[in-house]
Amino acid sequence: MNRKGAIIAGLLTLALAATGCGSSNSTSPGTSSGPLKLAFVQGVIGDAFYVTMQCGIQEEAAKVGATVSTNGPQKFDPALQTPVLQSVIASQPNAILIAPTDVSAMQQPVQQAVQQNIKVVLVDTTLKDPSIAASAIASDNLGGGKAAFDAIHQLAPNGGKVLVVSVQPGISTTDDRAKGFQDAVKANPSYQDLGVQYSNNDPQKAAQIVSAALQANPDIVGIFATNLFSAEGSATGIRQAGKQGAVKVVGFDAGPDQVKALQDGTVQALVAQQPALIGRDGVTQAVAALKGQPVTKSIGTGFTVLTQANLNSPEGQAAVYKTAC
């Protein structure tokens, strides 16, 4: 009987051990023990906007004891961002904060993360169907576009031709900025909208676009550049055409090159977002989702219009983007 009892006890022990291993393997990323693992997938590496957002993410993650890994494509391109995201998914973080590079093309890749029980928070850009994400945080881009037109209206009050230089169609943020600007132009008959041209996030191409536009329409009075690289290229194109001061430029974002252009007078105003705040809010919402706490499905953040007059103020300096954390 003792031998038989020992055999039975041994079998029970093996059964319990097997049950424990099975339970451990089925634990979802969002409920695993230890520090929370967060991953940030940027829209593009090297953009001061995303660097500043990364700083905000790291700052907030440190407060809650979470770890953060940051990855991103070399260009703002869904074909390049998709494999980056797939690699991040394979590392099984608890949550991913991502700036999708296209509203449609990134829908399925992000869905794959959700199917792996990874919480997703959209930061800056969004998807065609953002409901799959726990939360989405972005600037008021329509309002930012209108603010850009208001700035040009103040700089060139007599009206005239205006041009938008954007990135590429299908990016939610820049599409909204262009729309906000163009809607404001349409509401004012003193201005003529020359439409939107796309630089594919290439400053050199943006410079070429502006140079060609000024040759065809030397009476352009204002250009709205919807992101950092578009503004950088637009400033170069105007400088090459010798049109500094004659063509008023309002850029979106406040990276070092844009701030220098503002200081030099090539760009007359910048619409600065709050990327660090977007990052901090993203971490807050991701952690809440992981803990089963209430989340805010959509959060809008504001912006600061920078000019030479307010650039050196405390508010102005706080709005300038970082190049490193």
Rank of each mutant, 00 (worst) to 15 (best):
P275V: 14
T27R: 03
V271M: 08
T226C: 14
F224K: 04
I137P: 13
A184K: 10
V164R: 00
K297D: 01
A138H: 01
R239Q: 15
A216G: 13
G180K: 04
K243C: 09
T70Q: 10
G222I: 01
A246Q: 15
D257S: 14
P189M: 11
D253V: 13
G265L: 11
L127E: 06
N71A: 15
F76D: 14
L290R: 01
T101D: 04
Q317S: 13
T323E: 14
A318S: 13
L270E: 12
G160R: 00
Q293P: 04
V259A: 07
K243D: 00
D193C: 10
I8V: 15
K205I: 14
D183Y: 05
S131N: 09
S172Q: 12
V162D: 11
A148W: 00
N201M: 08
A178T: 06
C325I: 05
N141W: 03
Q182T: 14
D264Q: 14
Q168N: 05
A138S: 13
L277M: 10
F40R: 02
I299F: 07
L214N: 09
Q42D: 07
I299V: 14
F252P: 01
S230Q: 02
V287R: 03
A134V: 07
V167M: 00
N200L: 04
V51K: 04
P35M: 04
S91K: 05
A235K: 02
S135G: 03
V196G: 08
A133R: 02
L12M: 12
L97T: 10
T307V: 12
S298R: 07
A17Y: 08
D176E: 15
G237K: 07
V295H: 06
A9M: 12
L97D: 10
S139H: 02
P100C: 09
A213P: 03
D193F: 14
P93H: 02
D150F: 01
Q107P: 08
F181L: 04
I209Q: 06
Y191A: 14
P78K: 08
M53W: 10
K161H: 15
V196W: 00
Q86T: 12
L306N: 07
V123E: 05
M106K: 07
I223R: 11
G43H: 03
S139P: 10
A288D: 12
P314Q: 07
L12N: 11
Q86A: 12
A62I: 06
V120R: 01
D102L: 03
L270H: 03
T174P: 13
D47H: 13
Q111A: 06
A286D: 09
I118A: 04
K243R: 14
A178L: 06
T101S: 12
V41Y: 09
S23P: 05
N312M: 11
T82N: 13
L127S: 09
S211M: 14
T174W: 01
A178M: 06
S313I: 11
A235C: 15
V64Y: 08
L142F: 02
L277P: 03
Q317F: 11
K248I: 08
L14G: 12
G20K: 09
V41Q: 05
Q273E: 13
P83R: 01
A289C: 04
Q197D: 05
V283K: 03
T323D: 11
P83T: 02
T19I: 14
Q74C: 05
N217I: 11
K205G: 09
Q81P: 14
S87I: 10
A212R: 04
A48Q: 12
L80G: 10
A105P: 00
S298H: 05
D253G: 10
S104W: 00
S166G: 04
G302Q: 11
T82S: 15
V84S: 04
A61L: 11
